[in-house]
Computed example of a mutant assay.
Amino acid sequence: MLFRLPGVYRPQRDTWLLAEVLAGRELGPGTRVLDLCCGTGALSVAACEGGAGWVTAVDVSRRAVISTWLNSKLNRRTVRVVRGDLVDPVRTLRFDVVVANPPYSPASDDSVRGRGRGRVLGLAWDAGIDGRAVLDRLCVAVPDLLAPGGTLLLVQSVLNGVEKSRTMLEERGLRVEVVASEQVPFGPALAGRARMLEERGMILPGQRTERIVVLAATDVGSRAGLRPGSFDE
């Protein structure tokens, strides 16, 4: 059972698919795991249960930070929970595994909401017109947080352009592969925006399912001197 304050993203199938992939990795007392956009901390708890010795969770939402902290205590797990904008609080650190279930629901516009409750609620799932407002930032910033041989495990919808994520990560010198994929019904956010997505041509008329995928992007050595596009998978 996970405690969740109002406005924090409720774990859904994308969360659990990512957790299943994480469970298949070898984690040990020396493994350093970062849970970005942690929400309730479900993935942080999963990393601890998998054997990771060092788990850090980051979210911009104060409610998410509180939810993650409480869930770590309720499950008797040790998680360092910090509030901040994406990677800002951990820029000087390096991790063996980074898990990320960022907001990727297409929104009505790209406007940034003001601070306070409205901003927190929006950031739980809204991600700009194309759903890539956070994905793009993550693909640029996370490679610098990976220890040698480290891996980013990223879940997203095919509606947001999996190939764009792959290309951006490969340009940063990572080897990228799809390690899990599943067709799922629309969650509450997309179900309420189906007509908007149809009008934009992002889904077919009457479509009410999406495919979610987990990308594994692995550091294959020093990226020093690599230029965008110089990495050959």
Rank of each mutant, 00 (worst) to 15 (best):
L152G: 05
L153K: 08
V213L: 01
G50L: 02
R208F: 12
R83F: 09
T209W: 09
P6G: 02
R91L: 14
V213G: 01
G229V: 08
R32V: 12
R94T: 15
R223W: 05
D14C: 05
L153I: 13
A100T: 04
P143L: 00
A57W: 00
R119Q: 15
L5G: 00
R25L: 15
V162L: 08
L152F: 11
D109R: 10
E26G: 15
R172P: 03
P29Q: 15
P89L: 09
A57G: 01
N101S: 08
R25A: 11
V90K: 05
N71E: 04
R208V: 11
V179I: 09
L197F: 07
N71L: 06
Q183P: 11
S165M: 08
S72P: 07
W54S: 13
V176D: 02
G50K: 01
A107R: 13
V60T: 10
R200M: 05
P11E: 02
G53Q: 04
R10E: 13
L226K: 02
R91M: 14
K164S: 14
R91A: 13
S105A: 15
D35C: 10
G84V: 02
L5V: 05
L145H: 03
G201R: 04
R77A: 14
F186C: 00
A127I: 05
G53V: 06
P89C: 12
A180F: 09
V97E: 09
R77S: 13
C38P: 04
Q156D: 14
G206F: 07
V58M: 04
V79K: 03
T218V: 10
S165A: 14
R132M: 12
R10A: 12
T209F: 06
P148F: 03
S108Y: 13
I203Y: 01
A194Q: 15
V213R: 00
S222I: 08
G187H: 01
T92F: 15
G221S: 10
R193P: 01
L174T: 06
R200Y: 03
K164A: 14
F231C: 08
A19I: 06
